[in-house]
Structures are given as C-alpha cells and as structure tokens.
Design a binder for these strands. Structure first.
Length: 333
DNA sequence: TGTATTTGACCAGG
DNA sequence: CCTGGTCAAATACA
C-alpha cells in the first residue's frame, strides 16, 4: 500500500507543483514545499524498495509493503535490529541482557545535519571502527554521565550503505543518569549559545529517570508535534519510549530489538530512563518547512560532548542540513 | 589549559 | 583467527 501510495503521492504533488509554477500568484515557498514533498515521497518509496529487499532475505518473505518507511524492517529474526538495514551479522560481542534498539534517522543534503542525528543526550565518542562490509565506520558513544552518574547507556551510529542519507543509531543499555534533564532545560546560555537563534525546542527535556510527564503524553506530543513515526511499537513499547525527538524535521523511526524482549520481557524491556534520542547537544538550528526553526539543545555544562553524529562520518553534506520530515508526515490519503 | 575527539592497540566472543 | 567493542594516549580545539 505504502509504496504505491508514495509514488502516487509524488505524482500528485508533481502535478500540483506544475500547477503552482503556472500560477503567477503562488509563492516560491509553496513551490519549494511541494518540491521537497515530492522528493521526500520518492525517497520514501525508494527506501521501501530497498528495505523490502532486505527484509525479504532476513525473514524469508515480505509481509506486504512496508507501512511507511524503510525503517519498517525493524523485526529481523534475530536480535540484530540493524541487520535489516543491510548490515552484516553483528551479533558478536553484544551485551547480553542490555536493552537494544535501533533508530533510523534520515537526513537530507541542504539541511541541518547535526540536529537531525543528535538526540538530546550528552554523548561522548569513545571509538570508531570500520565495520566489515560497511562503507562507513561505526561510531561508538557513551553517555557523558558515565563517570559521574554511572550511566551505562551507549549508542552506535552508523551511516547506511544503501542510503547515505540514513543513519542507524543503535542504543544499548539504559540511561541511569538523573541530571540530564537539568542540563537540557538550561540549554540556552551554554557555551554553544552563539549558535542559537531561538529558545530550546519544545520537547527537548531529557527525561533520564526524572520523567515528569507521562511517557504516553510524551509519545503523543512526539508524534503530533515532531512528525516522528513510531513503528512496530505497540502500546507497551510506546510507554517504554518516553523520549521525544527534538526536531520537527526528523524522520525518526524506532525499532525495538527482539533481543530486548527476549531477555527482559516486553514490559520491562525499557526502563523509564531509556529514552529515544533525537536532539542535539550542539545548539543547532535548522529551518523547517513551516518556517520556524528548532534549536538543538546543548548541555549546560562544559561536559558537552555529544557529537554531531553525522560529522563522524567521512561524507560531505551541505552546511545546512535538515532532517527529512516532510515526506514522513501524514499527508492524508 | 582543560576538554573533546581521533585513532591505534588491546580484549573477548564466536 | 577474525571481528566488534572498548581503552587510552595523542591530538585538536576553544
């Protein structure tokens, strides 16, 4: 359904664009929006095709079209949630018993890169490794509060081979730090303030442990305001993912690794502190289609480290790098 | 000068 | 033995 829909959507949008081009009264902004929607639509369609191929191999057959994006392939037979993305078997040295899930973030050239990949947590890079069979190296990050609060959360960031605009961010372990929220709340006024153009994003709070808003509420706003797709998340998972990506531009998809469920059970798979990230510590701004900007937050202290994920990779993108969100926004049938 | 990142070395699982 | 994951010294940066 989705693939055809996206193609049809792209076609229809193209027609609208033509109409706009012929209409002298239409604004450039409108045309640009249409153009971006078209691009997003086709990107999405291509992703579906690519991922479908992968999942077909992994699962022994497709189960119909991917619902909305390539990230649909979050249910491989093993606990390798990344495997569906074309990564070779990476089961070695996996921390058993640790919650592990993958988030796919797509970015597009010409848009804010850092913001799209960062997640609001404070990460420090501790390693990078070339992965066999992958064009791009994998970056290893750990929570910056590891030393202080003993937070053992780590994440791995890898650029997709098939789709260079997509990053697979695998989160391993849970955040046990309790002081993150304060950092984020005080985003403005940090050493990176020079990059800020507006206040902190609406959903930037770091909810490590001190979750004040119910996960469900967060999820709602997450989906509503940030145009994020939660896929393959049933209610239980939804409750386990209080995190809200901070960017309204990101196409973020979470995929729970089956291993989490196997090891811990669905209900306990993700402690409340386990938050899906998508914000940026480096104050970053990227324009959105609807005109206003979202500023990525930064930790208030000098302990800012969370690197712009995308910059860890040897690829070059426009300075202005925004997240591709339009195409993933519900546009109605 | 302090902090973050880079990168080669090391460790351990399969 | 190969590979992924981590460590830690070197380097870069503000």
């Amino acid at each position: 359904m989705s693939l055809i829909y996206e193609l049809t959507q792209g076609h229809e949008l193209a027609r609208q664009l033509i109409a706009q081009l012929n209409a002298p009264s239409s604004s450039d902004e409108t045309k640009e929006i249409l153009a971006q929607k078209i691009e997003a639509s086709y990107e999405k369609a291509l992703s579906m095709v690519n991922c479908n191929a992968n999942t077909s191999v992994a699962t022994g057959g497709t189960n119909g079209m991917l619902e909305s994006s390539a990230s649909r392939c979050a249910s491989p037979p093993s606990d390798d949630s990344d495997r569906c993305i074309g990564e070779p078997d990476a089961s070695k040295k996996r921390k058993s018993g640790q919650p592990r899930w993958t988030q796919r973030v797509r970015v597009r050239p010409g848009m804010a890169l850092e913001g799209s990949l960062d997640d609001g947590f404070s990460w420090r890079k501790y390693g990078q490794k070339d992965i066999l069979g992958s064009k791009y190296p994998r970056g290893y990050y750990r929570c910056i509060h590891r030393s202080v609060g003993g937070c053992l959360a780590t994440k791995q960031v890898q650029r997709s081979d098939d789709d260079p605009t997509t990053f697979e961010i695998t989160y391993i372990g849970t955040h046990t730090c309790t002081n993150v929220a304060s950092n984020l709340v005080s985003l403005p006024g940090t050493s990176d303030e020079k990059n800020q153009e507006q206040g902190p994003p609406p959903s930037m709070e770091h909810l490590c442990h001190n979750l004040k808003q119910s996960p469900q509420d967060l999820l709602v706003s997450f989906q509503k305001d940030l145009n994020v797709e939660n896929q393959h998340l049933d209610q239980t998972y939804a409750n386990s993912f209080p995190y809200i990506p901070s960017t309204s531009n990101s196409n973020v998809v979470f995929s729970m690794s089956p291993s989490v469920v196997d090891n811990n059970g669905v209900g306990n798979a993700l402690p409340s502190g386990f938050i899906s990230p998508a914000t940026s510590r480096t104050n970053f701004s990227f324009p959105t289609l609807d005109g206003y900007k979202i500023i990525q937050g930064a930790p208030a202290t000098s302990a800012m480290s969370s690197p712009a994920v995308g910059l860890d990779f040897p690829f070059q993108l426009d300075q202005n790098f925004t997240i591709d969100n339009n195409g993933f926004f519900p546009q109605g049938p």
